[in-house]
């Protein structure tokens, strides 16, 4: 067992899979010699060599297209799109190519690849380098989407994503790269489509993802200590497949639910979850589901403004308290 940063966990997760399977290859901008702009892939070039860890030009379409062609014909590529926002310049592959090739060809074409993206705000990078793009990618039948919130989940879900026969978008949170956590020694393989209950509670359920997970946990801590409100915290981890049963099970126990989403409000992942709860667990609820999100605005660069926009521990605390008391 070792303390590892979320950043180092990325390299460890990729290395675990590359060591296991020669068909796993890795490509992206500045990922090899430079070790990644977030330094999350340091050492991979040295360990696996330039044929398997390849720097590319600034050609996001070529990166994802090449990953797809390689995946279709026998490799298991991991592609990095540096900032998640850049998905927009290669969206064709996400929207039209990866997820539809199997279906359109009646099962002839496979597409086992992983696209890693650096997602989310908190780094004061402004509107084009800070977005939470979960809802850009979770809407396409045929894609899978995971968003780990801890170093151990990074390693385990990376393994699950690489071994999965479907295309997986692997969402890393840029503002979590420096965080640390316990990671057991040896091989770690997690399971896609599984949420985790990180804290049990009896009064309400907080459903969170990515950087909102540590904030939800901190808010739950304060709500318990200061107000005696017992919150269960669910880390969704996998948006597709979605572990609806864990979520519905928690709601059935607590009868109140809050989603905590970093994305701007419209069509965030929480909207889909709340709609499932409304369909399938309406009579379990003692009050309306509440979505705590970034307001529907682009993200500003200033730290003061960005902190106002993205749900903070304070805002989660206040919103839950107000709703639970009303």
């Amino acid at each position: 067992m070792a303390q590892l940063t979320y950043r180092d966990a990325v390299a460890r997760g990729i290395a675990q899979e590359m060591a296991r399977d020669e068909d796993v290859v890795f490509l992206g901008e500045d990922i090899a010699k430079a070790g990644g702009v977030f330094k999350a892939t340091v050492g991979l070039l040295e360990q696996f060599g330039p044929l398997r860890v390849r720097d590319t030009p600034i050609s996001e379409q070529a990166i994802l297209g090449a990953a797809m062609g390689a995946a279709m014909t026998g490799l298991k590529p991991i592609a990095e799109i540096m900032f998640a926002d850049f998905i927009a310049v290669c969206y064709d592959y996400i929207a039209n190519e990866f997820p539809k090739s199997r279906y359109m060809t009646n099962g002839q074409v496979k597409c086992p690849l992983v696209v890693r993206v650096g997602n989310g705000g908190g780094a004061r990078f402004g509107a084009q380098h800070s977005q939470s793009i979960e809802n850009w990618v979770m809407q396409f039948p045929g894609l899978k989407v995971v968003a780990p919130s801890s170093p151990v989940d990074i390693v385990g879900l990376m393994a699950a994503a690489v071994r999965d026969p479907d295309p997986v978008i692997f969402i890393e949170h840029k503002s979590l790269y420096a965080t640390t956590g316990e990671v057991p020694d040896g091989e770690i393989v997690d399971t896609l489509g599984t949420a985790k209950i990180l804290r049990t509670g009896s009064d309400c359920t907080l459903i969170a993802l990515g950087m909102m997970v540590p904030r939800a946990l901190a808010a739950a801590e304060r709500l318990q200590a200061e107000e005696g409100i017992s919150c269960e915290v669910v880390d969704v981890r996998s948006l597709v497949p979605l572990d609806t049963q864990t979520i519905l099970g928690s709601v059935a126990r607590t009868h109140r639910v809050f989603t905590i989403e970093e994305n701007p409000r419209v069509l965030g992942w929480g909207a889909e979850i709340v709609s499932i709860i409304a369909d399938e667990a309406f009579y379990d609820l003692d009050g309306p589901p509440v979505r705590i999100t970034t307001p529907n605005i682009p993200l500003p660069a200033s730290d003061i403004l960005e902190d106002l926009a993205i749900p903070s521990v304070g805002r989660i605390f206040e919103t839950v308290l107000r709703s639970m008391r009303s």
């Binding site: 050609s59 379409q61 297209g65 797809m68 062609g69 390689a70 490799l75 190519e97």
Partner: peptide, 13 residues
């Protein structure tokens, strides 16, 4: 244009 990069990927393999 989508398949030009895809063909590159198959060739890379």
């Amino acid at each position: 244009g989508a398949h030009l990069p895809i063909a590159c990927g198959a060739a890379w393999r």
